[in-house]
Design a protein around this nucleic acid. Sequence first.
DNA 1: CATCTGTATTCCTGTATAGGCATATTGCAA
DNA 2: TTGCAATATGCCTATACAGGAATACAGATG
Lengths: 117, 117
Amino acid sequence: MELTQIYECFCDRTRLRILHLLAETPLCVCHFQEILGEPQVKVSKHLAYLRSRGMVETKQEKNWVIYSLPEQRGRELEANLKCLQDCASGDPEFKRDLRALTKLRRRDEPSVAIACC
Amino acid sequence: MELTQIYECFCDRTRLRILHLLAETPLCVCHFQEILGEPQVKVSKHLAYLRSRGMVETKQEKNWVIYSLPEQRGRELEANLKCLQDCASGDPEFKRDLRALTKLRRRDEPSVAIACC
DNA sequence: CATCTGTATTCCTGTATAGGCATATTGCAA
DNA sequence: TTGCAATATGCCTATACAGGAATACAGATG
């Protein structure tokens, strides 16, 4: 994956929030909708953008599509994801997202990524 | 500086090469032209882009304009610049740029950033 | 089959950029 | 002053998104 492609994926706030969440756990579209508070189209399009660039992978689970970070990540992607996590730790919005995720996981325990919505 | 703004600056190869060089030393426009092998307009415009976003600072030195990274860098910028340096170390083009810089500095010693071209 | 749910896509409009060419600008030197 | 060197800017065209509205599609369920 080209370095600039990584940064192209990173240069939108919604996509950053998505990737930040995915660093924590795989998620389906409706989870993103709920946590980010963004309309379905917007979320879906950004996910498509990320997928078209190999930044995320998908897996069909019944009616849902589960997004996750790729299993195999290049050195550069790995470094930048780590850097993002570091930067995110000081940002109120990212922290809020993480709290929302935690609450949602507690609610849906134990099968988060399956019976997701 | 907003995190996404950093990534917007990072998502063009020419700008990445510029920033990678600036992490080493301040430089004037014609140095960039020479090292990058890109036309003056292109270099100048990318530098203007970076300056308009506070990613670089300038200083007039006689007939030349010396560009440098800002003295004060936020935590996020610092982290991402470091990450960029790390990623660049494995990229042939970035390495070539660095070699070209070294050669140019040797040639222009000792007053690199002054009698620059 | 009919329908519902979750997700993707198409069409549209507005905005941002990339990069080239020509030209402007600024400071210095003869 | 005239001219040159270094740099910036305006105008142009092509391309890429962002985001909303409406619609399509696919799988599950009744």
